[in-house]
Design a protein around this nucleic acid. Sequence first.
DNA 1: GTCTATACTTCGATAGAC
DNA 2: GTCTATCGAAGTATAGAC
Lengths: 214, 214
Amino acid sequence: MVCYADAQLITWFNKRQPRGIQSVSERRLGTESSKTRQALLEAAEQVMREEGYAAVTSRRVAERAGLKPQLVHYYFRTMDDLFLALLQGLADNYLIHFARALASDKPLRGLWEISSNPEAAALTTEFLALANHRKNIGAEIIRLNRRMRSMQTEVFKQVLQSAGFDLDEYPPEPLAVALESIARGMALEKSLGITRSYASMRALVERYLTAFEP
Amino acid sequence: MVCYADAQLITWFNKRQPRGIQSVSERRLGTESSKTRQALLEAAEQVMREEGYAAVTSRRVAERAGLKPQLVHYYFRTMDDLFLALLQGLADNYLIHFARALASDKPLRGLWEISSNPEAAALTTEFLALANHRKNIGAEIIRLNRRMRSMQTEVFKQVLQSAGFDLDEYPPEPLAVALESIARGMALEKSLGITRSYASMRALVERYLTAFEP
DNA sequence: GTCTATACTTCGATAGAC
DNA sequence: GTCTATCGAAGTATAGAC
């Protein structure tokens, strides 16, 4: 199994094409390396997770960070820019965990664990909802989805092949989609307090994973 | 396979316990049978699907329906009440399609089709996001989830049994969860314009469905 | 059943001082 | 880099006339 160091993977991944159309206002803007900017992003993530994307307003984010609302507009020209930065952070975070899963001896279980995280699932759901009506967010989600899916599919392919499975009978891509969809679905139910089918699903998934990763 | 008529099923299903805490304001309220109320609900559903839950405001809903914003408050005491009514409509709609699937000779394929509807998936995602921070919505979603899941599980159980499958090896409940999660995941990607893994996933699912429903 | 009028809150965004 | 001050727009909700 190929193994990247965290930093390397993220660096490689972030060599991305310029994203969407940027606003061309003349207004002054804070640097990306600012600590305050980071604090605002963390506050925004908390607000989004706890109260939903509609609650991510300059005033509420600033309040959570103990700062003035105008600072949000100083570091992010528009709220859309803030959401894009947030999405970027989420993707970076995914990559870190993905790299760890890759480096472990049971990468598929790692993928399952990543997508089973209720907090991450809730955040992802917020972004998926956002993506349906904010063009910029939607475009970025599509970009990220493409890359993540490719990487997941590659992991499935290598694991299945080295375990001697026929890739026609066990097609890597839909299996990757299935794993992520199911894990996120379960995580969402969990974050709502629904645990009813958790055990039986865990057993079912475990059976497949054991077959794939003995 | 048991077969209910649409109306009967909905009637049975809607014999539900009273939902959550209702506001106790003295204000006048329109009747549930009003045509205007129905128009507002349809407008709200459109707005929610196209622009997200955050766009479901009294002003925007009224505008879409060609009415005055205050009418929204006349028919729904609070916006939460409107969301709950919307959710109820969504559940009723699900039941209609569920009943049709039950009555057909391939109920599992029917379940797949229902959850594969991109518009419905987008709406469901909006509600799942809403559920994470609006207590009333969350409670109602949990209630609906429990009932729908029971019904889906029962369908799986009957189909698998009559096809001679071992229910320990093919456990109905997690299979129902998997079917819905995957279908919704695919539908969400579709509504974003991602069609990449659609064909291969369709083939994989078809293989299982053919085994279950020859 | 629908309207006008209105009170109050919160929002995004910007200009300009320090 | 952070602040004060401020605009205009949009939001929920209610009272009361017709």
